[in-house]
């Protein structure tokens, strides 16, 4: 069996990467296995849970539903690309202050989805937060403290 290969050029968290990959390789596995950026998680195989949420050219996508080949020429931001040496982003800090995470497995995807939401709606209502994050599942928190985390972030710097 001959394995086909495609070349992709993807910028991840500001760093350009050029790799040869199988056409079927999912973006999430490109990030995790090829680039060793393991902050993006895999929680399901039906695009239901959102643990793999990243930003693709500024738009939140589930990276288990995108082929690495489709992201050719694109810019990806993962959870590792938020915040910086000086500390957490407002969304990350909001989750810390309001106990928006327990086991932490859904958290990177949740944080990326929340960041995308606040980019579009800097001051969302509770209903808008719940609507905006409905594609991300958490089994630990029951969601209310995630809502509060996003509200904290909105009041303390937003999507930065």
């Amino acid at each position: 069996m001959r394995v086909e290969i495609v070349r992709v050029e993807i910028t991840v968290n500001g760093q350009p990467h050029s790799r040869e990959v199988e056409p079927r390789l999912l973006l999430v596995h490109f990030l995790r296995d090829t680039l060793s950026l393991t902050g993006t998680h895999v929680g399901c195989d039906t695009s239901s849970c959102g643990a793999c949420t990243v930003m693709l050219d500024g738009v939140a996508v589930k990276s288990c539903t995108v082929l690495a080949a489709q992201a050719d020429g694109c810019s990806v931001t993962t959870v590792e690309g938020l915040g910086g040496p000086d500390g957490l982003s407002p969304v990350q800090e909001g989750f810390r202050q309001c106990h928006g995470l327990q086991c932490g497995f859904c958290t990177p995807g949740m944080v990326m989805a929340a960041t995308a939401l606040l980019t579009e709606r800097p001051d969302p209502s509770e209903q808008e937060i719940r609507d905006g994050l409905k594609g991300n599942m958490c089994r630990c928190t029951g969601y209310q403290m995630i809502v509060e985390s996003v509200q904290w972030a909105a009041a303390n710097g937003g999507a930065r």
Binding site: R32, S36, L37, T38, G39, T40, H41, V42, T78, V79, E80, L82, G83, L88, Q92, F95, R96, Q97, H99, L101, G104, F105, T107, P108, V111
Partner: peptide, 21 residues
């Protein structure tokens, strides 16, 4: 008090089994 666990988990620097190579 906020949790000691959170800084790593929030920045994608947790260590889950599938993260280990």
């Amino acid at each position: 008090v906020p949790r000691k666990e959170d800084a790593a988990l929030l920045t994608g620097r947790g260590t889950f089994v599938d993260d280990i190579h």
